[in-house]
Design a protein around this nucleic acid. Structure first.
Lengths: 168, 168
DNA sequence: GTACATGCTTGTATGAGACAAGCTTTTGCT
DNA sequence: AGCAAAAGCTTGTCTCATACAAGCATGTAC
C-alpha cells in the first residue's frame, strides 16, 4: 500500500524513465538515419553479447535476447558478411555453430563504447563529483530492482497487470 | 577532455542506462504478448500526447513523434476504432482534423499510469526517503542534460559521431 | 477565378521478425 | 549396431509497422 507521497515520487521517476527511454530510442533512430549501412540495432546487440560474454551458440543467443532462432540466424548472417563475427563449427556438437566476435567486431564495439562514454562524460561535465557518483549508484540500484521485478519469461506467472507498469 | 575517472563513471552510467532501456523494452514486449489486442506502443504514445497536451492536429502529432503523416493517420484510425480518440473537423481550417482523447481514452491512460506508479513504488519500497528523492532528482537532471545533447532534428548539425553515443 | 500550396488519407513497397518446413547431426532405446 | 526421435540451425512464407508516393479536398494568393 504505497502512500500518496510514495506514489508522487514513483510518478516522477516513471515519467523521467519514459522520457529517457524515448530520448535514447530517438538517438538510435537518428543514428540509423545518418548511417544507412549501419547494422540494425537488434543485430548490433548480438555483437555486444558476443564481445562481452565470449563465443556462444546461436540458440543461446536467441534465448538471451528473447528472439526466434531464425531471426538470429539472419542477423548473424549480416554480421558475418560484415566481418564482425565468425561462425565456427562447435567441436563438441556438429549440429551447432559457435559464434564469436572477430578482432574487427571487438574494435567496432570498443569504438562505439568509447564515443558513448565521451558523450555521457560531457553531459556530466558540470556535475559535482558527489552527484555523479550518486547518479551512478542509484541508477545501478534502481536498474537491479527493476530487473528483479521483470518476471523471467519462463516463469510466466500471472502477469496480466504486472506488465502494464511501464507504458505511456 | 574527460579524465579517466570521469570516463569510468560515464561508463557505469551508460551501461546501466542501456540495461534499463532494454528492461523497459522487454517489459513492453511482454505486455504486447500478453495483451494481443492492445494497441501498438507507438500508437499508444499518440494517445498519451493527446491526453497530456490536449487536442492537436494530425500534422502536429506527426512532428512531435518524428513520424510520417500517413503512419499517424493509420495509428489514429486504430485509436478511433477503439473509441479512445475522436476526430473532429478543425473549425478554423477545413482541411485539418482535430484529434482529441475521449473520456475513455483518458480513463485508459490514467489506469495505465496508476499501475505503473504502483509498480515503481513497489520497487522503491525498501529505499530510504532520501535515496528515493535523490534518484528522482538526479534522474530528472540527467534526462534534461541528455535532452539538451540530442540535436533537434531540424538542426541537423554535423552529427556523424554525436549520435553514436548510445549504442551497445 | 484560376493556379498553387497545405492537410490528410489511401495505395504500394520495404524490411524486420515469427512460424513452419527442411536438412544435418546427435541421442536413446532395443 | 541400427533405427527412431530430438536438437540445432537455415531457408521459405507470412504478417505487420512504417516510409514514400499519389490522390482528394480545402485554403490562399495573385
Amino acid at each position: 500500500m504505497p502512500t500518496q507521497d510514495e506514489l508522487a515520487i514513483a510518478d516522477a521517476v516513471g515519467s523521467q524513465l519514459i522520457r529517457l527511454v524515448r530520448l535514447v530510442e530517438r538517438k538510435q533512430v537518428q543514428y540509423q538515419a545518418e548511417h544507412p549501412d549501419a547494422v540494425e540495432r537488434a543485430t548490433y546487440h548480438l555483437l555486444v553479447h558476443l564481445v562481452k560474454d565470449g563465443a556462444r551458440r546461436a540458440g543461446s543467443l536467441a534465448e538471451a535476447v528473447h528472439s526466434d532462432p531464425s531471426t538470429i540466424s539472419r542477423q548473424i548472417g549480416h554480421l558475418v558478411r560484415l566481418g564482425l563475427v565468425e561462425r565456427t563449427a562447435d567441436p563438441v556438437d556438429g549440429r551447432a555453430t559457435l559464434l564469436a566476435a572477430t578482432e574487427e567486431g571487438r574494435r567496432v564495439f570498443e569504438e562505439n563504447r568509447r564515443i558513448r562514454n565521451e558523450r555521457i562524460a560531457e553531459m556530466l561535465e558540470r556535475w559535482s563529483v558527489d552527484d555523479r557518483r550518486a547518479l551512478s549508484e542509484l541508477l545501478t540500484r534502481f536498474t537491479s530492482d527493476f530487473e528483479r521485478s521483470v518476471p523471467r519469461p519462463a516463469e510466466h506467472t500471472a502477469a496480466t497487470s504486472d506488465v502494464a507498469a511501464v507504458r505511456s
